[in-house]
Design a protein around this nucleic acid. Structure first.
Length: 720
DNA sequence: GCCGCCTTGGTTTTT
DNA sequence: CCAAGGCGGC
């Protein structure tokens, strides 16, 4: 603060000259001292360490508003990066409230992945991609890996394709290409590493051939594009002057590398994060990026937000104690509350999982009787399967509830089938999509026919669609080969179908085309019959109904994108500097959108469900960023909370503890922590008991005054 | 090529 | 206990 008075002076002169927006100062109203310091700081690199519930998003949004209103930074010179779409949407919404709707047109507030996608679409050919490349979702990635492994005669039982696929992704997330990875392999490497390397080599080549990129490829490609192309890199440096990153503790190696590359010598980067809430280490998130940031970026100002606006002090005391057992924290934060002492945290020691779910439901019922809305209550657990007992008990007591998580709409088989048809229309080389639906619904194109086709494609080094075309041409020539003719006869139905689909795509609107597509491919009928056979035809989420919801979703997308300025159109400096893509194919835009913006559950209108008054059930992972007045942390048990799987290393134990901390800090008014002495799991009853985190917590308060918690025992006789 | 039985395995989740 | 995928029989 002191040593930057010069900057301050410069800035205030600038401000005077430009007639500072009188509204600018209102942005700072109601901020506490450290929030104020962060928001109104001079232009520079910043690391904001924001404890749970300390107004992180508010600071981020206010800072952006301050950049625009006070420093007169053009929205197009700002990039705000989030980890999830949910966070990106929230940020845009809150920003719109503060600085108006028009800003988000030119301001990039998006996930790492969609930002990289935009850059790759704008500079596709520079990145070695053909415009119109498709994105492989996880499902497609695994099926591609599986196909390659079978081709390579690798036992897919010994080495699970999903493991190999995620190993490949892990390498990409560390910026390691197939060639580099193979050089790291030695004879001593474990078999699965060797297999990963072998498959990675082929996988990389085939992805290029099929003109498709998986999720981690989006990042890696962009990083390579920026590294190898000075002109494009400097173009971005000129554009992105102020870069802000949310949930920085969740960034992985390749995302960090991207940040370093996208920030120019006179750009500023502001990152917000909480090392104590880093719970995604198992999928590559690297908390040490926070430390690296201080080292790699110049003159970083650190701001600590520790004043909590969410919970009572007793809840915060428990949270502070739990996280206090972690060593190696970036900074020891002690959360300080704003809302008084509150009730003691109640620990429920239950005889078994049935008494636990009964006790919790009972308390929810009495809370509701005393006037608490169901939507203000949450049940949080470590593992998804723990929700089962609570679902049953709540159902029996007629307490409404919603479960978050579970199968995602865009991961359902019927939706993926529909998407695969769309993908091959956008990208003919996408064999992975083609192989998914060439015989779905059944067209009597079995493995033998497919193999025949693949042989031709391999010989000619071309896609399967191309191979079919060659076959067709051959059949119409002289000297027709008999086996080829019979092969063509088998696939002709599909060839013709593709032709019809192509015509329809050109002549119809996107949603009309999609509806027509589902009809003529037979997917509607196929899934309607399947639903009927399995007696699911009247279910709310029957597969047939889901296909209908897909159409609603496309219609919604259509009506959003007919608005004048489509957000995706604005590639950086695209009009001046990029020769790619004039008008984007709406189908391609839609596909990119749903693969990257995979919405959770959709209701009949194709929008995410909310608004009903119901108790919230979810994992502690998915509760991050949320808050509830009443929180029940259930199954707080040995072998569940420090998960049995990762209790081996200190590192993962610390992460499990952070997960407990995240759970505790969701509660505003009251917190209950429950555990069972016995739990029936996968059919058999096991003796469990309190989590070690609970033991160390209770031990800490032994013999002390002002203990913020109480323990109640609930015997099996209490409920039945 | 399809249906059904049987084996097998079952943290966390986003893009 | 339950869901999904593989394989064998028709």
């Amino acid at each position: 603060m002191q040593d930057n008075s010069l900057y301050d002076m410069e800035n205030s002169l600038l401000e005077d000259a430009l007639d500072a927006d009188p509204q600018a100062d209102r942005i700072l109203e109601g901020l506490n001292e450290s929030q104020h310091e962060a928001v109104s700081s001079e232009l520079r690199n910043m690391l904001i360490i924001a404890g749970a519930g300390t107004g992180k998003t508010r600071v981020l949004v206010s800072r952006i508003a301050w950049l625009i209103k006070h420093f007169h930074i053009a929205p197009r010179n700002i990039m705000a990066v989030t980890f999830t779409n949910k966070a990106a949407t929230e940020m845009r919404e809150r920003l719109a409230l503060m600085v108006g709707n028009s800003v988000q047109m030119s301001l990039w507030a998006n996930t790492f992945h969609s930002i990289c996608l935009r850059l790759l679409r704008a500079y596709a050919s520079y990145a070695g991609l053909i415009p119109g490349f498709t994105i492989l979702d996880t499902d497609s990635q695994v099926s591609l890996v599986k196909r390659l492994m079978k081709d390579m005669n690798i036992d897919t039982k010994e080495f699970k394709p999903s493991d190999i696929a995620s190993n490949i992704s892990k390498q990409k997330e560390n910026g390691i290409r197939a060639l580099a990875f193979s050089k790291m392999i030695s004879a001593k490497s474990p078999d699965y590493v060797k297999v990963t390397s072998q498959v990675y080599n082929v996988y990389e080549r085939v992805c290029n051939q099929e003109n498709s990129v998986d999720f981690s490829e989006l990042l890696l490609r962009t990083v390579e594009l920026l590294e190898n192309n000075q002109e494009i890199r400097e173009l971005q440096h000129r554009r992105f002057k102020e870069i802000l990153v949310d949930e920085f503790q969740d960034t992985n190696a390749i995302q960090y590398r991207f940040l370093r590359l996208i920030a120019g010598p006179d750009s500023h980067v502001l990152v917000v994060g909480d090392d104590d809430q880093s719970i995604y280490g198992w999928r590559g998130a690297d908390v040490s990026n926070m430390r690296k940031f201080l080292k790699d970026f110049s003159n970083v100002k650190e701001v600590l937000l520790a004043l909590n606006y969410r919970s009572t002090q007793k809840i915060l005391d428990v949270a502070n104690t739990i996280i206090g057992f972690n060593s190696d924290r970036l900074m020891e934060k002690v959360l300080k509350g704003n809302f008084g002492e509150g009730e003691k945290v109640r620990i429920l020691n239950c005889a078994n999982n049935k008494t636990e779910s009964s006790a919790v439901s009972e308390r929810i019922a009495s809370l509701h009787e005393s006037g608490v809305a169901y939507r203000d209550i949450a049940i949080l657990y470590r593992n998804n399967y723990l929700s089962l007992d609570f679902e049953q008990t709540l159902l029996r007591k007629h307490i409404p509830f919603v479960i978050y998580g579970g199968q995602k709409f865009f991961e359902r088989a019927e939706i993926l089938d529909a998407i695969a048809y769309m993908r091959i229309l956008v990208n003919e080389d996408d064999d992975t999509a083609l192989l998914r639906i060439i015989n779905t619904p059944s067209r009597k194109i079995g493995p033998k026919v497919v193999d025949g086709l693949r042989t031709i494609a391999n010989e000619r080094n071309c896609s399967l669609i191309k191979a079919m075309r060659l076959l067709e041409a051959h059949v119409h020539s002289d000297n027709v080969d008999k086996t080829l003719a019979s092969l063509y006869k088998k696939v002709a139905v599909f060839c013709d179908l593709l032709k019809v689909l192509k015509e329809k795509k050109e002549s119809l609107s996107l949603s009309a085309f999609a509806d027509e597509m589902l009809r003529i491919t037979g997917l509607y009928q196929f899934y309607q019959e399947k639903d009927f056979k399995e007696g699911k035809d009247n279910e709310e989420h029957s597969r047939y109904a889901n296909l209908g919801m897909l159409i609603s979703n496309i219609k919604e997308f259509e009506s959003n994108s007919t608005a004048p300025a489509v957000s995706d159109e604005s590639a950086p400096e695209s009009t001046a500097d990029s020769d790619e893509k004039k008008e984007e194919d709406p189908l391609l835009t839609y596909l990119s959108n749903i693969t990257l913006v995979s919405t959770g559950e959709l209701n009949e209108d194709g929008e995410t469900a909310s608004g009903t008054d119901a108790v919230n059930l979810m994992t502690m992972h998915s509760s991050k960023g949320l808050e509830f007045k009443y929180v029940f942390l259930v199954g707080f048990e040995k072998d569940i909370l420090p998960s049995r799987m990762c209790a081996f290393s200190d590192k993962s134990l610390a992460e499990e503890r952070r997960l407990a901390y995240v759970g505790v800090t969701r509660a505003k008014t009251a917190l209950y922590i429950s555990y069972s002495q016995n739990r029936s799991l996968f059919g058999k009853v096991e003796a469990t008991g309190a989590s070690s985190f609970l033991r160390e917590l209770v031990r800490e308060y032994k013999g002390k005054h002002d203990v913020p918690l109480t323990i109640e025992s609930i015997s099996s006789a209490s409920y039945y």
